[in-house]
Write a protein that binds this DNA or RNA. Structure first.
Lengths: 352, 352
DNA sequence: GCTTGACGCGGACACGTGTCCTCGGGTGTC
DNA sequence: GACACCCGAGGACACGTGTCCGCGTCAAGC
């Protein structure tokens, strides 16, 4: 097709390329940048030579000279959390649509300073954080960005007051969950991986307490956690282990609220292994509404994060800062989640 | 902490920064590049000023001048396939360890040429492809890279003869699966999403045929596919739909081999919904051995891709090309998968 | 007081590009 | 044949950095 020859050394500069085509360097440059006043035949000659030689202008030289880099940095908690990666995917697509290039890197505790410096040295126009991070370390990075005047937005991690944040309202999600379970007759709740340190008023715990209070159910008596018995993780095994512990309790709860779908599915597995029927003897809820929720036995009630909406708002917040004077007040936008009811809670408990 | 002041405009050049510190630009540059012959006190003065001002040298200017960009391009099929993202995660970590920066982009059919040009303009030292792509389009890109002299490696996609490739031996995986199922007494097999167009000798179909032949089981009579009845996808729903179709057959197979775990789990769901017991009345196998396999009911027998090993070999192949004369012969390295047996196949069928 | 280093200064060049400018050659028009 | 006009050539500068080199300054050692 295009590239037939094997140039021992590829052409690396416009000057060299222009010599190869038999034109002046400036002429080639004007073709590449679409300037007017050129004979169509000349343009076509350059195009063809580019295809043949595979020459590409050095982006570093272009960006050095040019005003804008059209680049954003994306800092990920990790690349293994499915929902975080989904957000990354949506975000990267959104930026590509707007002709921004994304630099994607993973936040390593203790190394974040270097990472941000790398982004800044690449002259990114903005930085996005996706996921949960060590709070004080992130807060330092945000303060530095604010001082530096680089726009940013933090998605999901909510307890950095000085940061612009976009997050699903997890409290709202848990309120919906609790209301649903209470309506099904449940009065005792096991918490799987949900702790009070999770993000204040928008956190899950806050929603649970608020909802229980609205139903005049005293939290201390109704809700129970066994997280402290095991090493905290966010995967199937953790849920399974927790469920095994709950199964041994004489007065075990009838409903189980998990931090995420993985823990919920693990918990279902653990409860079922102990001979407990779901949803007949125990209800279980997840969080994130991953596709797998519709494929478990029973299918899993879960809370949908509305990722597309989150990313839409996130890019809006970010692009709204570019080219604007720095905002004095931090932005906080919340997204309403959506409860998806499935079989794992589809059983009404007889009132005691 | 570090950044207290709010400079209206951040410092953008070493010259400006040097003026701010009260040193010569060259002196600052020598500090930044760790050259000898500097008073410790001077070094410390520069360090402190960097922390205070948040100044970072312009990477574009540095890379323009410097010899090596220490950058690799990673071209992903998408960011939604869990196993592909796992490979990305491992690969990015591996490169970071070797002080390479990764540029991560998604392959869009029809846009791949622009993408590779972008990588080349960023002067990447090598390019990795992860996943499955439109074959002829990828082949063109590989030819261009070969002509250009840019090292590459393709992970997973195997039917590009001119490309350096690393892949798990999927045929080997299916041979293990079939042997296992035959040993359990199965003689009839339903194929879920597995087609002959999948990659020749290393493809799944080839392994299945080879294994059946070894057991003197005629493929045409033993294996059956209903893929053509539905729109091909790779998710849970596709498996569920296929299973529903198989369930209606009077002489349905006793074992089901799925393209991946998602289809397998969907199929289990579909079969169970039709009242078919697993593994009592039907065996199901997946591929990829994702964590979820241990959490389904029953747990799912699957084939582990050995991702870490794949990535290890992949980086080895890639780094072996950098700085070397281009190889005349394409490299093909295969990784042996590992069958993980679980409940979904744990039942021995009575011989007919 | 003189010599000798140690250390920092500042000029110079190169990297590859975009853009502006002047200039010249070719073409078409009347 | 004279004129204007179009289009490309080529010189110049700037972008921010790394590096080399000669020069000045300051302090310590004799």
């Amino acid at each position: 097709m295009a590239a037939k020859k094997k140039p021992a050394r590829p052409i690396t500069s416009t000057a060299e390329f222009a010599r190869h085509v038999g034109l002046a360097r400036t002429t080639v440059s004007r073709v590449l940048n679409g300037q007017p006043g050129l004979k169509p035949k000349t343009i076509e000659r350059v195009q063809r030579a580019m295809d043949e030689t595979g020459f590409t202008p050095n982006a570093y030289a272009v960006r050095l000279k040019g005003k804008s880099t059209a680049t954003v940095g994306i800092c990920m908690e990790d690349l293994l959390t499915p929902t975080a990666v989904k957000k990354l995917s949506a975000l990267q697509r959104a930026f590509r649509m707007k002709h921004y290039t994304s630099l994607i890197e993973v936040f390593e505790p203790g190394q974040s300073r270097q990472l941000i410096r790398h982004f800044l040295s690449m002259r990114v126009e903005a930085i996005v954080f996706i996921g949960h991070f060590p709070a004080e370390e992130l807060a330092q990075r945000i303060d530095e960005l604010n001082a530096h005047g680089t726009p940013h937005v933090v998605i999901d991690h909510v307890d950095i007051p000085s940061a612009h944040r976009v997050t699903v309202d997890r409290a709202r999600g848990m309120i919906d969950v609790v209301n649903h379970l209470v309506a099904r007759g449940h009065r005792s709740f096991g918490l799987l991986g949900i702790s009070a340190w999770l993000h204040g008023k928008l956190g899950r715990m806050h929603g649970i307490m608020q909802a229980l209070a609205a139903h005049k159910l005293p939290f201390a008596q109704c809700a129970r956690s066994l997280d402290h018995l095991h090493v905290r993780r966010n995967d199937f095994e953790f849920g399974k282990t927790l469920a095994a512990s709950f199964a041994t309790l004489p007065d075990r709860p009838t409903a189980y609220l998990a931090l995420n779908d993985e823990i919920a599915i693990g918990a279902m597995h653990g409860l079922q292994a102990a001979g407990i029927d779901i949803p007949g003897e125990a209800a279980v809820t997840g969080f994130n509404n991953q596709e797998i929720c519709a494929m478990t036995r029973p299918t899993l009630t879960s809370v949908d994060q509305q990722i597309d909406e989150t990313i839409r708002v996130g890019t809006e917040v970010l692009l709204g800062q570019i080219g604007q004077p720095p905002r004095t007040k931090a932005i906080l936008r919340t997204i309403d989640p959506k409860l998806i009811i499935r079989q794992s809670t589809d059983f009404t408990v007889a009132a005691r």
